[in-house]
Design a protein around this nucleic acid. Structure first.
Lengths: 196, 196
DNA sequence: CCTACCGATCGGTAGG
DNA sequence: CCTACCGATCGGTAGG
């Protein structure tokens, strides 16, 4: 960053990135704008050249992330009709994202409830679209006699949440790569639905 | 609670319960003592007759919960040596707790990081004991040739976190009982480790 | 980018 | 249990 004696120069991308790091570490309500400013080596009022309000930082982070999740899903399942193939690809991309975008996932899961209305409801609706899409794959697989699972709803909860939780324990400096996690979790998903 | 015109009478158990509800809903930093007082129909300073500080409410909630998790595990696995039997019982009690003690689980998972040192480290250490115990069961099962799983560590993360997440989606007024969730999740755990 | 400053609210205390 | 009040800090604004 800026050297001693120089004025720091900041961008809105840098503000968002610092907010992302601190929100993930301490939560939205646990982070003061003064801490974001300190990380960027500026005074708090300077942040307002790059954002409208603290709340907007949270909204931008969450909106981009949930939109990214839905885009991932669409890309990963496009043109595929086999339920097992769809499940594998949807799980792999979802787990992979949670290993590679840990901060985003932690903030979405912890702080979406801190959004003001109507934004909170809008973001929850987007998240639910992904939930339903994943559950739909499992229901299709059961209907086609390809999966054996008593409750597709519980199965989709289990698969979804085990992927989400990767963000909480994965370490960038650990011995295992995001791709390895994604592959292993894909196998877990297949086992949970007892694919043929 | 107290009727109009009467003075409210509060206990420390009631303060903890209101704190639990509000911390689970809005997070520790998102909850003001004035909101806890309002829920109990008293003024904020009156809370100090039943607690020492806001921080102590959080510590008490987390300490009781993680201690309860460890006690559950000990009880559920006591006297059992078969890895599959141990895995089933440990998973069932853990999933069951997360359906029946949702608020506690949400607070522990979201706000343990808000604890002051050395309490934060102490609580994390207790949580880790449970993690290691669960992982140990899976490693034992693999060593005995009873389970087939590439990474016991990833398997134990997946099983643990799918159970924890029950607290986030389970509804008391839903169609499914905590026992049904626990049984189904136990089956998922067995599938994840591919028990013989 | 900064200094100076705003009202609101925070956790907590004094004293009864 | 309450009223009255404390210093600290919050997000945000004025003005340059």
């Amino acid at each position: 960053m800026a050297r001693i004696g120089e004025r720091a120069t900041v961008t809105s991308a840098a503000v968002l990135d610092s907010a992302l790091t601190l929100f993930a570490e301490r939560g939205y309500h646990g982070t003061a704008l003064s801490q974001i400013a300190e990380a960027l080596e500026v005074r708090t009022p300077s942040l307002y050249n790059h954002m409208r309000a603290k709340h907007d930082l949270l909204l931008t982070i969450i909106d981009r992330t949930v939109t990214g999740v839905l885009d991932d899903f669409t890309t990963a399942t496009a043109g595929r009709t086999d339920p097992l193939d769809r499940l594998r690809n949807a799980t792999r991309i979802y787990a992979l994202r949670h290993a590679t975008h840990r901060r985003e996932a932690i903030v979405v899961n912890r702080d979406t409830s801190s959004l003001d209305e109507p934004h909170r409801a809008a973001m929850q609706a987007l998240r639910r679209r992904h939930d339903h899409a994943l559950r739909g794959i499992i229901e299709d697989g059961v209907a086609a006699g390809r999966f054996t699972i008593e409750s597709p709803a519980l199965g989709s909860f289990a698969i979804r949440e085990m992927c989400v939780s990767v963000a909480r324990w994965f370490r960038d400096d650990g011995p295992i790569t995001p791709e390895q996690v994604a592959d292993e979790y894909t196998e877990f998903a297949v086992r949970i639905v007892s694919a043929e």
